[in-house]
Design a protein around this nucleic acid. Structure first.
Ligand SMILES: [Mn+2]
Ligand SMILES: [Mn+2]
Ligand SMILES: [Zn+2]
Ligand SMILES: [Zn+2]
Lengths: 132, 132
DNA sequence: ACACTTATTTAGAACCATTATAAACTACCC
DNA sequence: GGGTAGTTTATAATGGTTCTAAATAAGTGT
């Protein structure tokens, strides 16, 4: 199986639950954005046996730590995650509460001129809020 | 008093509590970022009588709605607000969990080329994450 | 296969920032 | 002053997330 090695190489045991979550998250055409609750629902739809909510949280955080997921900084009552871990930007539709990817070519390079002593830039993300 | 008119003109009654919060938020040299808990602490430090936590929440949301404050989109367990309501960007220091303003001149103009049908751009914000 | 160790899963409890409630209070208008 | 709508307040409720600790499963060595 393609995810067994991925997990083992990351020091994560390839459990049945983790492999099922890998299927839902990564074995799809397009990357996508999700909350924990939305992921839980997808898992229920796709698989017969249920995975406990605690395991969903544990797994998402483990994958985030390994760089297979990232959090999207947005003000919402739920945390948003992204299966697209490349550097990219977002539209956030305030009416529909929907996130849409922006390609880097849609924004162009961003040159941060200010420097902070002893700190390095980890990421540069643009959030474009949309309304009707 | 300078905040009485500001509040009345916004359709907000200039109560003692709101005026005190105005002093803390706006009667200072520099704009700043805060969480509700940090604001509550500042209020305690500055004034003798206490303002209930519910009123702090109510007031911050009322001021946000009127455009006197804005929320900063960031992943934290607490919501961050900004007394600088002009368009500007932020450094977020992941180690210290501190927000620092970036001037527009520090980033340069950002040209969003992609358009979404029937939606207009409300804001464009850059978040630059820093680490040691 | 077996025993042993360590990682993981799980249900449920705990946590805690935020929001809702509803009664007391206050600003405003006549 | 009297009436009304807006505001404050203590407190409860909400709900996403994290913690706990016991059960289970995976890896390792023999
Ligand atoms: Mn996390
Ligand atoms: Mn708000
Ligand atoms: Zn994305
Ligand atoms: Zn700011």
């Amino acid at each position: 199986m393609k995810y067994i090695d991925k997990l083992r190489n990351s020091g994560l045991r390839p459990t049945k639950q983790r492999l099922q979550i890998c299927e839902v998250l990564f074995n799809v055409e397009k990357t996508f954005h999700f909350t924990i609750n939305e992921l839980e629902q997808k898992i229920k739809d796709k698989t017969d046996n249920k995975i406990s909510l605690a395991t969903v949280y544990n797994t998402v955080h483990a994958f985030e730590k390994k760089g297979y997921l990232k959090q999207i900084p947005i003000n919402s009552n739920q945390t948003y995650f992204d299966t697209n871990v490349t550097d990219h930007h977002h539209f956030y539709d305030l009416n529909d509460q929907k996130l849409i990817d922006l390609e880097n070519s849609d924004v162009g390079p961003i040159n941060i001129k200010k420097k902070i002593n002893g700190k390095k830039i980890k990421s540069v993300e643009v959030l474009v809020k949309l309304e009707d």
